[in-house]
Amino acid sequence: MDSPASRSAADDLALIRRMMNAGRQKAAFDGAHLMIWGAVLMVSYIAQYLQVYGYVPGGSLAIWLPAFAVGWSSSFLYGRNACAHEAETNIAVTAYNGAWLAVGITMVLHFGAAVASSVFNPKAITVLACGVIASAFYVISLVTELRALRAVAAGWWLILIFATVQKTYDAEMLLVLAGASALLILLPGQMMRRLAHDKAAES
């Protein structure tokens, strides 16, 4: 049978475990990067849709190269500014940054390979994008325990399935992706930004 002293030590260890878990799951980041990329992708998809119908001149590269340039440079500038203000870093922040960096690198590599080989398969890039974005949101939701992000991940999985089962991949899919960028990237980013600012305001 345990002595009172050992029971107390066991309680203390349980408290330590509980609090360490709470600290690990702290979502101390705001969604500025998501808002930037949500807006950039939404505008790009709409521009490409208009391009298909001849309202916007040039090819896909004329839209996506500036889009990637604006997205990456904005993310870089914002990230550098956040670091200058000693942004908090814990496993939640590391998972968030790592997941989105992985998404960005995957998409740029795929896009680069498509351009280099002159084989651009819009369906393949859509399925890949939906898959990696859904995975990123799912990983972040697991680490931070923000359940709303699981719904966002599920939304991207549904779009992946929708894109996969499409027999003809027409321009209207670009509007679906523009809407998804607004609802499933821009909006969650705004939600996370509000959460972070509410915390700051309460202080």
């Binding site: 408290l15 609090m19 360490m20 600290g23 908090e88 870093t89 202080s203």
Partner: peptide, 15 residues
């Protein structure tokens, strides 16, 4: 103890 445990993983926290 709770403060130290929380900070051990969160690294930094607002009041």
């Amino acid at each position: 103890l709770a403060i130290m445990s929380y900070l051990a993983t969160a690294r930094e926290a607002e009041f």
